[in-house]
């Protein structure tokens, strides 16, 4: 490393230590840039792929009110994808490159979306638990060191709390509904609880990106701390619904001031990440198909814009 780079890096770290934001035009270490592109694009892809499992129920929503709410939720998620792609673009990568990386499997998305939405209850469980887990993570990312990412998180968090509420409301209606509805709610809770805990990623001791990300304040809280927060907040919510907690070993630990819980099935976690979830292939193939079917539309838009520019130039000449 040259003398110059060394002092740049010191200045960079100083800024971060002083809670100043790094902006697109500021100098940053290459590894910081890469790390951010990976994380932000993965986050963007998750928003976009997440349209699929929830979109799966827009046409079957059991009331018009639910249909409208779900539709606007899914639409929000597409919007989140858009803000996040834009935030990543400030780091010198294009949306087309990011989409390409997703489609060839180089970039990841949240593995939770490889689980199928089989019942209407799953839409409740996803809004409540999956968006709930995402909020825990995103609230902490509002203080992330990269300015455009932090600002997009602030915007996104405002909408996320509506998402969680709509999910919980679905669960509440089911839980206080008929016996069959209550069964549906319990089943969805049972299936989505553990995968939601997995959303926070591996234990800190196993996490490949954690240490550097913390030093650079890309991440502000560790996987395990965020997960604990989520576990704790979910307990009274399950109680209020009158449902059974899926973790039979869950116990309040007076000393820690937190709930102790069973170990997550990490084998399942890696199994799904590695392509063995019910929907891994389907999600990517769906994305590729929509993208390919839209190619002629994008081409037409570009061709038309070029014609307009040309006509304007000819009009001046």
């Amino acid at each position: 490393m040259s003398q110059n780079e060394l002092s740049l890096e010191t200045a960079f770290q100083n800024k971060i230590d002083n809670e100043l934001k790094i902006e697109p035009k500021d100098w940053m270490p290459e590894a910081y840039r890469k790390n951010l592109i990976r994380q932000i694009s993965q986050h963007a892809h998750s928003e976009v792929i997440g349209e699929q499992p929830e979109g799966n129920w827009i046409t079957r929503a059991p009331s018009l009110r639910r249909k409208a709410v779900l539709l606007s939720k899914v639409q929000d998620e597409a919007g989140h994808g858009l803000y996040l792609y834009s935030a990543a673009e400030t780091l010198g990568i294009s949306r087309a490159e990011m989409i390409e990386a997703l489609q060839v499997g180089k970039a990841k998305y949240a593995s939770i979306f490889n689980y199928p939405t089989q019942t209407w209850g799953d839409i409740g469980a996803i809004g409540w638990l999956v968006d709930g887990a995402a909020i825990c993570n995103q609230v902490s990312l509002q203080r992330t060191s990269y300015g455009p990412y932090a600002r997009s998180m602030i915007r996104i968090c405002k909408e996320e709390s509506f998402h969680q509420r709509q999910g919980y409301q679905i669960m509440l209606e089911l839980a206080k509904g008929t016996i069959e509805q209550k069964k549906m709610a319990q089943d969805s809770l049972n299936r989505f609880y553990w995968p939601s805990l997995m959303m926070f990623g591996p234990h800190d001791s196993e996490s490949a990106h954690s240490e550097k990300s913390m030093k650079w304040k890309i991440k502000r809280e560790t996987n395990d701390d965020l997960r604990q927060k989520f576990i704790d907040q979910t307990v009274p919510q399950i109680e209020f619904l009158g449902l059974e907690h899926p973790d039979k070993a869950l116990k309040w630990n007076e000393e820690r001031g937190h709930y102790d819980s069973s170990e997550i099935d990490w084998e399942e976690f890696y199994n799904v990440i590695n392509g063995n979830g019910h929907c891994n292939r389907q999600r990517i193939e769906h994305h590729v198909k929509a993208h390919e079917e839209g190619a002629w539309v994008r081409d037409a838009q570009n061709a038309y814009t070029a014609k307009v520019v040309l006509r304007a130039a000819q009009a001046i000449a």
Partner: peptide, 27 residues
């Protein structure tokens, strides 16, 4: 609403979602 996640690009998923919402609101 069937266009959700099927649009030619993300902006269209959003715009079509808006239109669908307006119609469901009218209904």
């Amino acid at each position: 609403s069937e266009w959700a996640s099927n649009g030619p690009f993300l902006e269209e998923d959003i715009a079509l979602g808006n239109v669908a919402l307006d119609y469901i609101g009218r209904a």
